[in-house]
Computed example of a mutant assay.
Amino acid sequence: MADKQLPQNEDERQITLVDENGNEELYEILFTFDSEDYGKSYVLLYPAGTPEDEDVDIQAFSYKANDKGDPAEGDLFPIESDAEWDMVEEVLNTFLADDDQE
């Protein structure tokens, strides 16, 4: 499970991830989705403050939300199977393609 800190304001769509060395980095929530095939919810994150025209590494986790369904206040879990990663990448590619068309 990835360590994270909860946002100070519930309206914020940010999550602070803490790596294995204790370094903190603030991420914005790109989007969330549910998979009926895997029975899980997923959140995709990108580094906060990244300019829109800059390429970024997107982080993806499955999550267990709080009672309100908020991923920023739930628990994040690594995605471990290749099939699950393939599904997440397909959803991301569809999201990015739809975003490019707008």
Rank of each mutant, 00 (worst) to 15 (best):
A2F: 07
A2M: 12
D3N: 13
K4Q: 14
Q5I: 06
Q5L: 14
L6H: 08
N9H: 13
N9E: 13
N9F: 14
E10P: 10
D11V: 14
D11H: 13
I15Q: 00
V18P: 03
D19V: 03
E20K: 13
E20W: 08
E20F: 09
N21P: 02
G22W: 05
G22L: 05
G22K: 04
G22Y: 05
G22A: 06
N23S: 11
E24Q: 15
E24D: 05
L26Q: 10
Y27C: 02
Y27P: 00
E28M: 06
E28F: 03
E28N: 15
L30H: 05
L30I: 08
F33W: 11
D34R: 12
D34V: 08
S35P: 04
E36C: 08
E36K: 12
Y38M: 08
Y38A: 06
G39Y: 03
G39S: 09
K40M: 12
S41A: 12
S41E: 09
Y42T: 03
V43S: 02
V43L: 04
L45F: 04
Y46T: 07
Y46R: 09
Y46M: 09
Y46K: 11
Y46D: 01
P47Q: 02
P47N: 03
A48Y: 14
A48H: 15
G49I: 03
G49Y: 06
T50M: 07
D53K: 11
D55N: 13
V56C: 10
V56H: 06
I58T: 12
Q59H: 10
Q59D: 11
F61N: 06
F61A: 04
S62G: 01
S62A: 10
S62Y: 05
Y63Q: 01
K64P: 00
D67T: 08
D67I: 08
D67E: 14
G69H: 00
G69Q: 00
D70H: 00
D70A: 02
D70Q: 03
E73S: 10
E73C: 07
G74Y: 02
G74L: 01
G74C: 03
G74A: 03
P78T: 06
P78E: 09
I79G: 07
I79Q: 04
E80Y: 06
S81A: 10
D82G: 09
M87N: 08
V88A: 06
V88N: 04
V88Y: 02
E89D: 11
E90I: 05
E90K: 14
V91D: 04
N93D: 15
F95E: 06
L96S: 14
D98R: 06
D98V: 02
D99H: 14
Q101T: 14
Q101C: 09
E102N: 12
